[in-house]
């Protein structure tokens, strides 16, 4: 069985797709594009797809990953293009490699997030970031199915900075075309790198932390985009490509 790892996005309005919604859409795309899927054994066979670490509903992403098992060998790039074509615009398949190394999920050590805070002055955001980083521990609350849970949102943060608006155009591609109407209003942008830990610390939790330490209260909901997930380079605080190992392990020629 050939296995392929794919990187896909959730862009623009399709960031409101829940993970379950995405799963159904993806499995239908597999059928439409007649990908020769391997099926699980059993009474109701399912196509072999495994998903890693899905971003929350409402959060955009440039770096989601999944793995599929095929019943026949396919060229990864062709398969990528075929699936991308078959999925709605916004759910885009942007990278594909043949699986050559194990333990992929363990390689997803951290995520890099871009947090757009409309109506917040960049100076104010920078100040809040400084206060947050000065703390060793920032306790935040999150409502879960089992009630309110309190945990530390600071420890998992490997990097946090207020950056200039319009960082290399990423926000623009990430939000789609019907959004260039925003004019004039103050807007702060944060770049955030968080280690994948238990309990998981989400960008939302870091925002709660900024509110707790520095009273930062954005007037409208933050727009969050996952830019990358993968191995964490602790020194530079950057996240690297998790598919690099598979690519490097490619047989010569």
């Amino acid at each position: 069985m050939q296995r392929i790892r794919l990187r896909y996005t959730k862009r623009g309005r399709l960031r409101f797709t829940s993970h379950r919604d995405f799963q159904r859409a993806f499995e239908r795309a597999l059928r439409r594009s007649a990908v020769p899927m391997a099926y699980s054994a059993g009474f109701t066979p399912h196509p072999k797809v495994s998903y890693a670490n899905a971003a929350p509903t409402g959060v955009a992403s440039e770096a989601e990953y999944l793995e599929i098992g095929l019943a026949a060998v396919r060229d990864p790039e062709q398969l990528r293009a075929q699936l991308d074509e078959s999925l709605p615009a916004g759910l885009d398949v942007i990278d594909a490699v043949e699986v050559r190394t194990p333990n992929f999920v363990e390689r997803l050590e951290a995520s890099e997030w871009l947090v757009r805070l409309d109506g917040v002055e960049p100076v104010e955001a920078a100040l809040a970031v400084a206060r947050f980083l000065a703390e060793e521990k920032v306790e935040v609350e999150r409502r879960t199915k089992n009630g309110v849970r309190v945990f530390d949102a600071r420890g998992a943060v490997a990097a946090l900075e207020a950056v200039e608006s319009q960082v290399d155009g990423v926000t623009d591609t990430a939000v789609g075309t019907d959004r260039d109407v925003r004019t004039g209003r103050a807007c702060a942008i944060l770049r955030l790198v968080v280690r994948h830990a238990t309990p998981a610390v989400r960008p939302d939790d870091v925002l709660s932390g900024l509110r707790a330490t520095a009273d930062l209260a954005p007037p409208v909901p933050a727009e969050v985009t996952r830019l990358a997930q993968g191995p964490l380079d602790e020194e530079s605080g950057t996240v690297t490509d998790p598919l690099a190992l598979d690519r490097a392990a490619a047989p010569a020629g």
Binding site: R13, L14, F16, T17, S18, D21, A25, R28, T57, G58, P88, A89, G90, D178, R179, V181, R182, V220, P221
Partner: peptide, 21 residues
């Protein structure tokens, strides 16, 4: 653009965004 700002506060926002195949 105006609807989008409301969507993070509602149940199952995907039903309001369109873009169906």
């Amino acid at each position: 653009p105006r609807l989008e700002a409301l969507l993070p506060h509602v149940q199952k926002p995907i039903q309001y965004v369109g873009g169906e195949l």
